[in-house]
């Protein structure tokens, strides 16, 4: 649906030039939610702004729904943009217009007649849950409500794709959760493909199907969200995952425990596989599991959990227990990997 091919973007200013994008290629499939994560300055905003040519790539092509945007005339580009919705961190609403007008004005300017405008505004304000707020001004709304207006404004053009530039970064956790739910609903019910950028791992984990990690203008790793969580390759990726699971154990405790047994990091999908398997371990083997830390997060498809455990017992018994856990579908990382984890926590 969205294809970026070898896109580079160089900003040249008085103080020299900055390469914001360095040969980036991304393919967002129809109907999926694709996330791009990276730290501030990684080039995420530049990337998403290239998807509707708010920023024209220095080299490379941008195709949306098969049409090469970089080759379009200004008039044709405007037409194409009407089918590409976009929402922003700062909402970007007209302060002087009511909620109704904020959605209606762009529709009118795109040439819809009065009746069509009215129908669309009512329909999409209802979808975002603001049917009671038609006559309110943005200044009277909360951040979450403002973002809902912006979403309704974008949806009212009935786009095929929606671009989200840090759409939840200005919102508190509860409101973020509600807006993410809304984005999921839009994707599921209206079939709109979503490309979003964020610096928050919980956004990725909660609603994305696939994800790309960006650093210094490059995509350093990409795959399904599950792949990234279970087998992260790059240090930055591991850091982002560590921001969701922080196993913070005092060094002295670790040294103390390592003497008799083994420390293992258990990862599992679904609530059914993790703890019950661990309970069986103590029943079947002469091993005493001791949970040092753990948490379960909600991913788009199913929950995903991590437990850091100390398995006390003979080396042989512990090995058998670990084999048993792996058999039960639990992913086990040993002490080596744990060392990496410590780094990502601090």
């Amino acid at each position: 649906m969205i294809q970026l091919e070898n896109v580079t973007k160089v900003f040249s200013g008085k103080k020299g030039s900055i390469q914001a994008l360095d040969d980036v290629s991304l393919h967002v499939k129809k109907g999926e939610i694709f996330g791009v994560i990276g730290y501030s300055g990684a080039g995420k905003s530049t990337l998403i702004r290239c998807a509707n040519l708010l920023e024209r790539p220095t080299t490379g092509t941008v195709k949306v729904n098969g049409v090469d945007l970089t080759a379009l005339s200004p008039g044709k580009l405007r037409e194409a943009r009407q089918k590409i919705g976009m929402i922003f961190q700062g909402f970007n609403l007209l302060k002087t217009a009511t909620v109704y007008d904020n959605v209606a004005i762009p529709l009118k300017l795109s040439g819809l007649n009065k009746q069509e405008v009215k129908e669309r505004v009512e329909k999409y304000l209802e979808i975002v849950g603001l049917e009671q707020k038609h006559q309110a001004y943005p200044g009277e709304l909360s951040g979450g409500q403002k973002q809902r207006v912006a979403i309704a404004r974008a949806l009212a053009h009935e786009p095929e794709v929606l671009l989200c530039d840090e759409a939840t970064s200005a919102l508190d956790p509860d409101t973020t959760e509600a807006i993410l739910e809304l984005l999921l609903k839009i994707n599921r019910d209206l079939g709109i493909t979503i490309l979003l950028i964020t610096h928050e791992m919980n956004v990725i984990q909660r609603i994305c199907d696939r994800v790309a990690v960006m650093e210094q203008g490059q995509v350093i790793e990409q795959g399904t969200v599950m792949e990234l969580f279970t087998t992260p390759q790059k240090a930055t990726t591991k850091k982002f995952i560590g921001s969701v699971f922080s196993h913070n154990i005092p060094e002295s405790t670790l040294t103390h425990l390592q003497g008799n047994g083994r420390i293992a990091l258990l990862s599992f999908f679904g609530i059914s596989s993790g703890e019950p398997a661990l309970a069986l371990v103590s029943k079947h083997f002469n091993v005493f599991p001791n949970i040092l830390s753990g948490s379960i997060i909600q991913m788009k498809q199913e929950p995903y959990g991590q437990l850091l455990v100390h398995l006390r017992g003979d080396k042989e018994e512990v090995e058998k227990a670990i084999e048993f856990l792996i058999e039960k579908g639990v992913q086990v990382e040993g002490e080596d990997h744990y060392a990496v984890n410590i780094q990502r926590v601090s």
Partner: peptide, 27 residues
């Protein structure tokens, strides 16, 4: 006037003269 609003209207494919009138002067 907030540059972001102008950008949002550009992203919706609105003509420059309409942006001047309905965003810049209005806001």
């Amino acid at each position: 006037v907030d540059r972001g609003v102008v950008e949002a209207y550009e992203a919706m494919g609105i003509k420059t003269r309409n942006i001047i009138w309905h965003v810049l002067l209005r806001e």
